[in-house]
Amino acid sequence: MNGLLNYLKEIGAGIKTLLTGMRVTSGYFFSPKEIVTQKYPENRDTLKMFDRFKGELEMPHTAENTHTCTGCGICENVCPNGSIQILTHKKENEEGKLVKQLHTHIYHLSMCTFCGLCVKNCPSDAIVFNQSFEHAVFDRQKLTKVLNKPGSILKKEAKGL
């Protein structure tokens, strides 16, 4: 008799736990406010990444098409994956001296692991991470980018650095 009682008790307790679980799930079913998914392409306009989000590397340029990169090559050295290549050339400045200047700042997005060492170690804050996150392209050559815009020169104030 005792065994039978235990058997029935066991069934009752089991069903109770099952109903508890079902209450949780059906509770969510009947509360559409709890839905957390976002409709991605539609919310592009309102979707804002955090300030520090490491999208892809970018070299900010002023309106006069100047940047602050001196071409020192620290970012190239500090990068663990070799995703940055810096080409420099000798160019005359206003005083007529030949000075080493940045020619192209090549950035391989395909190799970048977004560790942030380049941005942190840049002495002249020439490169930053932007907020873009849609990196998909159809041609992988597009993943290799030149960061300095054509014809851009070193910002004057930053020359002393």
Binding site: T25, S26, Y28, F29, P32, I35, V36, T37
Partner: peptide, 10 residues
């Protein structure tokens, strides 16, 4: 749809 609503999805 049922499983989506249960799982807080659309």
């Amino acid at each position: 749809k049922v499983c989506a609503f249960i799982q807080n999805r659309l």
